[in-house]
Design a protein around this nucleic acid. Structure first.
Lengths: 330, 330
DNA sequence: CTGTTAGCGCATTCAT
DNA sequence: ATGAATGCGCTAACAG
């Protein structure tokens, strides 16, 4: 910057102020601004965000914790976050992934903090202890997509699992199904239990049968169909199945196919959440789709508010929007 | 750090040196080191990487450009990169995504540079002009997964498209197929043309027929089956198809199904690249699997070497490893 | 509109 | 073993 200042015949401050856009309020002429800018361009000068961050005592970064780098859902969430941040011109996402692994999670969070993120937006599960430490450091923390069980007063922008699951169940009831099971993974899906509650409510309101064994819970990352086998080989088996994710629903299709049960004639199948693969001709999985991008944007906005006023109470927003796409499995 | 130094009764320098591990060579006793460390822990002190970066004039970050956040391939690549970097303890990935969009790409690269990454590892396509600018700035650039066409002397760790495609073609020939088509997207797959060359070579070596119209090129992000329709409704249609990606292969399955052609009886189908969904019972797509994680690790290593010695000539490594998984489509 | 001054939080000589 | 001094590249307060 000193070189540019010299060449342009102005003070370093002037260059600094022009290059970071705050020159208007300092009454610097558009002419000199233009001159300095083109000089900087010609010297292919790139301001050091590191030095800026240190001086401003703000990094201009927001940490984003994704479940991994291979989820359509995560991609939508982050698209929402980015487009919102991009509009604000002020914060940029630093991305980490938890990979469903506690050690990774801890290291990644540590990294984010060391790099000075001003807030953390988290699409993954996170240990209550880690969350507490972050909040104690004064770094705003926002859950996105779901609220964390066990951390009641955390900020979030989440899909309303209860209402969405209830809507899904009602949808199947409307299609004449009577014995509706719920398939989910408590370990993997933090919203699982509230979704089940919604399912249950809808069932009770419609005076449909609700059997505890029709809540099928698969352990983390497992595609073993043991429980499904038991449920679907019983004399009075369910005639419909709601799954907490398209992944689980895909496993269910395999199980059902293997048992010779036809979808949707014998068992109607509806997933909470959608992905491109669900549209495939051989799958055609019906799904309740989540406005993930919108939710991502909301989370970013919450983070920005919390950064602007750290003393603020947690901000919690629930989104009940959804749309049901009937493909071939319902 | 000043507070810690005061409480511990030592100089600020001492604290600094202890906290960043370089205290041994300064002859500081393990005892004081321990004391300072536990004091820091108790005060929940986190060193500012921003300040460190500024002072050391090294950010300790490597930029990684992913095609997006929803690809099994990208996830494996980055896993490889991370595990290698993690071993080295010295560099941490800052992740960006190109999203197949030129404007995004340019902005993301600018961001990485401003944040001071010491090298860029890129799994996506990148405009030659952007690449040139980065290299001119002195930032090492490594392609991973494929080499960039049009940028001959760039560093890379890539899958050997020619040999892999040749192997795939030979595999199909070995299964008795005679008329083998090649499906790919030139716009999306940077390795597409060398893969086609490999395919072609294998065909010629085996003295099999090679028709230009059996090279089916679909435009970017398109799943429209126009060209496939034409090829497969001809009197003498191919009896096998190699696809440059599992995504395209999935589209092919749909097209084939729609035309009443059975897979693999009428048409055998083999994809270059694998993903979890390919294992699904209703898909069972045969695939040639890429050692993506290994390639990611190699790319990281190249980046590290280039950082250590910037005057070094480009490092280019080709990996010909693969394994063919015969599922139900071959 | 310009220039001077004083840091931001650390790492790194160099002298002790 | 220690500590004072200097600087990384930039921003910001303030006096011109």
């Amino acid at each position: 910057m000193a070189m540019i200042a010299e060449k342009a015949g102005v003070a370093r401050t002037t260059v600094s102020v022009i290059l970071n856009g705050r020159y208007r309020e300092r009454g610097i002429s558009e002419k000199t601004a233009q001159r300095v800018r083109s000089l900087a361009e010609a010297m292919s000068f790139v301001p050091s965000e590191t030095a800026r961050s240190l001086s401003r005592r703000r990094s201009g970064m927001i940490g984003v914790i994704l479940p991994g780098f291979n989820s359509a859902w995560g991609e939508s969430i982050i698209t929402g976050i980015r487009s919102r941040l991009h509009k604000m011109q002020t914060h940029v996402p630093l991305i980490a992934a938890a990979h469903d692994d506690d050690d990774w999670e801890e290291r990644e969070i540590k990294l984010l903090i060391e790099r000075g993120v001003e807030a953390i937006v988290c699409c993954a599960t996170v240990r209550a202890e880690n969350h507490r430490r972050i909040v104690e450091r004064g770094v705003p923390f926002v859950f996105v997509g779901h609220r964390a069980k066990g951390i009641p007063d955390a900020s979030y922008a989440a899909w309303d699992g209860t209402r969405v699951a209830a809507a899904a169940t009602r949808h199947l009831i409307g299609k004449g199904r009577r014995r509706i099971a719920f398939l989910g993974s408590a370990a993997t899906n933090p919203a699982g239990s509230e979704q089940y509650q919604g399912h249950r409510q809808a069932l009770m309101e419609a005076k449909r049968e609700l059997r505890p064994e029709w809540r099928i819970d698969v352990p983390r990352n497992s595609d073993d169909g043991g429980m499904m086998r038991a449920v679907f080989s019983a004399a009075e088996r369910p005639d419909a199945l709601i799954s907490d994710s398209w992944q689980q629903a895909l496993h269910a299709i395999e199980e059902l196919d293997a048992r010779g049960l036809s979808v949707p004639e014998d068992v109607s199948l509806l997933a909470l959440g959608d992905a491109p693969i669900c549209r495939h001709g051989r799958i055609q999985l019906s799904a309740v789709v989540e406005p993930a991008e919108q939710i991502g944007g909301m989370a970013a906005e919450i983070a920005l508010k919390l950064i602007a006023d750290p003393s603020r109470r947690p901000i919690q927003q629930l989104v009940a929007d959804y749309s049901i796409i009937d493909r071939a499995t319902t």
